[in-house]
């Protein structure tokens, strides 16, 4: 059976001048930005969290670690 819908799809694809590379590069650029932002957040989020904990009067993991290290000082 003839399918005009398929013919229409082909016709529309011919009609539209489209730069596929532009779409591909745009998508890749978006992904690149997302990856960059994610890596920056991953890198600095723990430090920012520590800062807020310190500001709130608590002790962050890093200061806890320092205390633990000083708990049994090497007397030698």
């Amino acid at each position: 059976m003839r399918n005009s819908f398929k013919e229409l799809e082909e016709l529309e694809m011919q009609d539209v001048s489209m730069d596929t590379a532009k779409i591909k590069n745009g998508a890749n650029s978006d992904i690149g930005i997302m990856r960059y932002v994610t890596s920056v957040v991953e890198m600095y989020f723990p430090k920012i969290l520590d800062l807020f904990i310190s500001l709130a009067g608590g002790s962050s993991d890093s200061t806890d670690n320092m205390r633990k290290q000083n708990k049994y000082p090497d007397l030698n």
């Binding site: 799809e9 529309e12 694809m13 539209v16 489209m18 596929t20 779409i23 591909k24 998508a27």
Partner: peptide, 15 residues
């Protein structure tokens, strides 16, 4: 996958 589908996806969006 880009090569295979970009034109079709764009065509559907445009339609």
């Amino acid at each position: 996958l880009y090569e295979r589908y970009t034109a079709k996806v764009f065509g559907k969006c445009y339609s």
